[in-house]
């Protein structure tokens, strides 16, 4: 069966490095967030891991952007392009994601509306977490205590929003039966033509026409 490239090697390498960093950041962050896990933060080793992971978490997307500026900007533009077509997704999604076919899912672009939602969360919460984290790292004692206090508050709030969406992303991408080829595509980079047509109709038409023309 015909295979279509969905994720370039660079994109996949970036993805999996960010995965490792995100998990390290989330786990070491939870040591301070959940007082029940607090004993794991004693001595401060987890805070050093948090900082190292944070540096890689920022550096890898920056390097990716420098290597692929056009693709990165395209991706960002895609995340913030919303229109009428997304309404069709919103109508169909509640039943569609539960495995019903009551309302037909309209053909989607390269990223469907749900994926775009995740992209928006990654970009916005990523920026909020990095900026607030930077203030917490370098600004302690330099910024007024009131500013520091709100920064910690915002850092945790962004973690809750980002973390909740991360749970959704992980489950839909790995074990949800609708998206049987999602994980495979992020490992090998390719999806079957059948899957592409079924899940990303508009994208499929566009690239297959492009190939023909």
């Amino acid at each position: 069966m015909q295979e279509i490239e969905r994720y370039s090697k660079r994109a996949r390498v970036q993805h999996w490095i960010v995965v490792v960093c995100s998990l390290l950041l989330a786990i070491t962050g939870l040591f301070l967030f959940v007082h029940l896990f607090g004993s794991a933060a004693e001595g401060g080793a987890s805070r050093i891991i948090h900082r190292v992971a944070a540096v890689v978490f920022v550096a890898v997307p920056v390097i990716y952007f420098m290597l692929n500026p056009r693709r990165t900007l395209e991706w960002i533009k895609e995340a913030f392009t919303w229109g009428k077509a997304d309404l069709g997704w919103a109508k169909a999604a509640p039943t569609y994601y539960f495995g019903f076919d009551i309302i037909p899912m309209p053909p989607q672009e390269r990223s469907n509306s749900g994926q775009k939602m995740w992209m928006v969360v990654v970009i916005t919460m990523g920026i909020v977490l990095v900026v607030s984290g930077g203030i917490m790292w370098f600004g302690k004692g330099l910024v007024p205590p009131g500013v520091f206090q709100w920064t910690v508050f915002v850092h945790d709030l962004a973690f809750i929003v980002g973390g909740a969406m991360l749970l959704v992303h992980v489950i839909l991408g790995t074990i949800h039966p609708r998206f049987s080829e999602a994980l495979r595509s992020m490992i090998g980079g390719k999806v079957s033509a059948h899957y592409a047509k079924d899940h990303h109709g508009k994208w499929y038409d566009r690239i297959s026409n492009g190939k023909a023309g």
Partner: peptide
Amino acid sequence: GYAVAGLVAAGLLLNVMVARIN
């Protein structure tokens, strides 16, 4: 935060189960 995490996890579990059956 705990409530959100719990609700999202429970919702996802239910969602994956129902979708799988369907």
